[in-house]
Design a protein around this nucleic acid. Structure first.
Length: 568
RNA sequence: GGCUCCGUAGUUCAAUGGAUAGAACGAUCGCCUCCUAAGCGAUAGAUACAGGUUCGACUCCUGUCGGGGCUACCA
């Protein structure tokens, strides 16, 4: 059920009938006393038509009420304030939504989602959390709505830094166990690269050897990549990320396409030689002095750059994968880069006009001092260490709450709760804002956190167990009666609206906010409406509501990549 | 310099141009004879500054102050 879409349709139809072209602007009511939903569009429509907004609102309501379909879904509509329309849904309309079905989209698309993309030169650190977790959640939501999703893990497996790493690997006698700590290995080779001129030159030659397909260099490279990728796979497994080896489409995969990209750009008349490099100059990247910022696609030494690779990737996604949409969950610092890539791709015809290219940026991770974490020298926290600490803290808490718990169950609980907390703390923030990394914040188990939602879920399971009824036999369309029941039921009915929004905009924090609201409404209901001690009809109705709330929580958390447990 | 993002309670975060700016943590005070107190209730506390547009501005525009980021051969 898409409540917003239905209300929007009805109201905009009335607007049209009155000769007005204006959005209905439906949103969930900002306060409970305003009903369940509100339409904010009347004021603007009235303004444009030069009529009194409250009169228009009254007129709209009259027309709405004469529509049988609208009357069936709504129990009250009122004009409020300067011209808001407050809408209270009919309990009988809300009831069917308690089956908690996710509605498939009427217009399924092929959506490429580019996310995670760790740099294989290094070990995954906390900076990779956002793209990986947020991207995976959006992927889950898109798939749940019936879109065909193609994951693309555009790993950093190519480029100049590998010259440095392979040269260092060679110098250190090919000791593969040194690679067990990738981070140290990277740091050591970087140090050498910065200090040693000869090493630097050899590193650059190693890059050329790699790019020209030298067999020995390639073999070394492959070994390095395999080891590094297995580190990533391990992290994905722990985090429950849906990426697999099949989704790996790294930078190196486009090597054979790069020359073709240059040719195509030349054929399109876009290529210009400037200071020895092949560039594309587009008017839209002109500054105030009229100077155009070039997009360099081939260096003066003949080497390609990541811009070239990304152009090849756009082309691949458009033609081979036949994507209608491509989403890039990548750091906001690359905003200009993607603006350029998308513009060049369009100009060169690599992507059809009908294909949406969307950079879904996220903010930078900051230290507690508010300054960006420097990834170059120290200061980074490995993802593996963060997850260990999360599980350790969760285990300590679980043991404290439940001293008699068995070891196996303890570990299982600690994992679900610890990882849930880490993921939720990231997912619940607007991805575009910068991100302050703080152990205690990230591993908090109180308040608006995943454990709160998991706790609400486990309480529901507890009540259902005690009721000794089979939840699948509960009526799935109970009519809510008391106020806390209504508030809960209306919230459950809004599930599809929020999924739709996340699929369109790529902001899972809206789903988090929704689930938190749902959980607080459940808790209010739980406090105010005794379930098990009620009489038969009431008991069944309330059990049914609780069950629906539990299913919604479970499904919603699953779309965030967070598990639930029956006991906490 | 140019472009761009940001500045909201003590702290961490919310708020498609809508009504009285919401939460959480922390603080203070309450609530377990009662379906799990990882909970619930109450109190205090915020839009950097100055203009402007608008019926209505945290949100849009201009300026000031403060802080990130990007900006021709790294990715």
């Amino acid at each position: 059920m898409h409540i917003k879409a239905l209300l929007t349709q009805h109201i905009e139809a009335v607007f049209a009938e009155l000769g007005l072209q204006s959005p209905a602007l439906i949103q969930a009511a900002s306060r409970p006393e305003f009903g369940d939903y509100q339409a904010n569009g009347v004021m603007a429509a009235a303004k444009r038509a030069g009529i009194n907004p409250r009169d228009l609102a009254a007129n709209v309501i009259t027309k709405l009420n004469s529509n049988a379909n609208f009357s069936a879904m709504v129990s009250a509509t009122d004009v409020a304030g300067p011209g808001f329309i407050n809408i209270t849904l009919a309990a009988s309309f809300v009831a069917p939504a308690l089956t908690v079905a996710i509605n498939p989209t009427p217009a399924p698309q092929t959506v490429v989602v580019d996310y995670s993309a760790p740099n294989l030169a290094k070990e995954m650190h906390v900076g990779h959390l956002r793209t990986t977790i947020i991207g995976d959640s959006v992927v889950r939501v898109l798939e749940a709505l019936g879109h065909r999703v193609i994951r693309q893990n555009h790993v950093g497996d190519w480029g100049t830094q590998f010259g440095m790493l392979l040269t260092y690997l060679e110098d250190s006698g090919n000791e593969s166990d040194e690679l067990s700590d990738l981070e140290n290995f990277y740091r050591a080779s970087k140090q050498r690269f910065d200090d040693d001129d000869d090493f630097r030159d050899r590193s650059r030659r190693a890059v050329v050897a790699l790019q020209s397909g030298d067999a020995n260099a390639l073999a070394q490279w492959q070994r390095f990549i395999d080891i590094s990728m297995s580190h990533c796979a391990h992290i994905y497994d722990r985090l429950g990320i849906t990426l697999s080896d099949d989704d790996i489409m790294g930078e190196s995969a486009y090597n054979d396409d790069l020359a073709g990209v240059i040719e195509a750009l030349a054929a399109a008349g876009l290529l210009q030689r400037s200071e020895g490099a092949d560039c594309v100059f587009l008017d839209q990247f002109k500054n105030k002095e009229g100077l155009i910022q070039p997009v360099i696609v081939r260096k003066s030494d003949g080497g390609y750059l990541y811009a070239t690779t990304d152009l090849a990737a756009v082309s691949h996604r458009a033609r081979r994968l036949e994507a209608n949409r491509a989403l890039y969950f990548v750091d906001a610092r690359q905003s200009l880069h993607f603006k350029q890539i998308f513009a060049v791709a369009r100009a060169a015809g690599f992507a059809p006009e009908t294909m949406q290219l969307e950079h879904m940026p996220f903010g930078t991770m900051l230290g507690k001092d508010g300054k960006p974490f420097k990834t170059r020298q120290g200061g980074i926290i490995k993802l593996a260490d963060l997850l260990d600490e999360a599980e350790r803290r969760a285990a300590a808490l679980v043991r404290e709450k439940n001293p008699d718990i068995g070891l196996e169950q303890l570990n299982q609980l600690a994992k679900v709760i610890g990882l849930g907390a880490v993921k939720y703390s990231d997912l619940s923030k607007n991805r575009t804002s910068d991100y302050v990394f703080d152990w205690d914040q990230m591993l908090s188990f109180d308040g608006n956190t995943a454990p709160y939602l998991q706790y609400a879920y486990s309480r529901i399971q507890s009540v259902l167990r005690k009721s000794e009824v089979d939840p699948t036999l509960l009526p799935s369309n109970a009519i809510a009666e008391d106020q806390p029941e209504r508030r809960l039921a209306v919230c459950i009915a809004g599930f599809n609206d929020v999924l739709q929004q996340v699929a369109e905009e790529g902001y899972p924090h809206h789903l988090c906010a929704y689930l938190y609201d749902l959980a607080t409404r459940f808790t209010a209901f739980y406090e105010q409406c005794p379930i098990l001690v009620s009489d038969d009809a009431q008991r069944t109705r309330r059990l049914s509501l609780a069950n629906s709330a539990g299913i919604t929580l479970q499904k919603g958390l699953d779309l965030l990549g967070i598990d639930v447990v029956d006991h906490m």
